[in-house]
Simulated assay, not measured.
Amino acid sequence: MELLVRVQRSNGSRPAGCGSALAQEYWPLCDTWGIVVQAAAGLGLVSCAVLMLVLLLWSACVSRRRSSALAALLLFLLATAGIFALPYSFLIALSAQTCPVRVFVFGVLFSMAFGALLARGLALLGVALARGWREVGVAVALALVQVIVATEWLLVVLVQDKRTCQFSQPEFAMLQIYVMVLLAAALVTALCFLRYTWVTYTYSDSGQMHRQNKVQAALLVLTLLLSVCMWLVWITLLTYGNHAMGHSPLWDDPVISVALTANGWVLLLGHGFTQVHFMCKRNARTKDPPLDFTGWTSPRAQPAAPLDLKTGTDNEGFQMDADARRGKDVAWSGIFMRELSAEKDYSIPRPTTTNINEPYEEYYEHRV
């Protein structure tokens, strides 16, 4: 009964959308805020699934040097999809089934998402540790640390102490310390990359690529800044604000559910959709038409001239001298010539003297 009090409404009444046979721990599912959270989280989950499906279908057209970035983006979208699925475990009352999800999966999914953003920032800065497939390895390794932390916490607190999933909100917040360290490190890395894009310029990159790096850095910083703000808000409300306002048991789960959904959309819009757009745009720009080597592979084969054109050489004397010294086994260097119309004047205008008839008359008169 103690667990059911956490989700009981302030007036003790059943929400209008809940049936009489629905247990009290499921009442938030049919409450107004619960329906809004479910709709937003469900739409985000479907968006992540569609993006991952599109990337998997599109991966056949991506060159191999892009496969590592594609795998890192898929890992990030997978973590974001899990974040959108987490609010359902907080909409239902805390129980033996939802407790491991809240304690274990919460930190692991966020560590995977923020670890992927940290690895992406290191890769954009050119750090050798996160180049190529090592970017995916760095993101997975950072998430495994939180897996170890959450597993140890579950074993020590819940198994050794024989507590039936009872923990305070400050304990839950302290469990996310490593995730907050990852978030801070990712933000610092993104700020370094943003500074790098504004103070440096390499002539090996085109202007369009340089502008894209600036936009990508700005979006990465904005995404992480908004995530930091959301984490500060829900941790403050969970550990102090709700208790100070007198809504501590009742508002705890709604605060985390709303924070999860909002943070998921920030990650999806700020990094998920934009990275897919940048990746498709970059791949489309690298698709150049194949080169035409006609006349290069077989030097003796001369191209057929059009019917109304004549052939000629750009420097006949040089060509004859080269043929005489190197033999006739040289590539044909002729050019096509077209008859000029007599009605048009193709002469180059030159300066004229004032004495048109006898231009050198004065010169001959003053000869010594």
Rank of each mutant, 00 (worst) to 15 (best):
H277S: 15
F172Q: 07
P359F: 06
R195S: 12
T274E: 10
V36S: 14
S347L: 04
L144P: 04
C165Y: 11
L74H: 02
V136H: 02
F104N: 11
W296H: 12
Y26N: 05
W251K: 06
V108R: 01
T236K: 07
P249N: 02
A185R: 01
S347I: 07
L224M: 00
L22H: 10
A49T: 01
T353S: 14
V159N: 12
S298V: 06
S59M: 00
C280L: 14
F167Q: 09
V138C: 00
K310W: 15
S13Q: 10
T189Q: 06
P249Y: 01
A72I: 04
H366I: 13
A128S: 13
P100F: 05
I235T: 15
V138H: 02
W153A: 13
V140D: 01
Q97F: 15
Q319Y: 13
V255K: 06
E361G: 08
R367V: 14
Q160L: 11
T239H: 00
L56F: 09
S248M: 15
T261N: 04
G19W: 10
L129P: 06
R285Q: 09
G270F: 02
A39Q: 03
D345M: 09
E365F: 15
I35D: 04
L144Y: 03
S10Y: 07
C18S: 08
Q208R: 13
H210F: 09
V179Q: 06
A40H: 02
W234A: 10
L154T: 10
F336V: 10
T197Q: 00
M279Q: 08
D253F: 14
V138W: 05
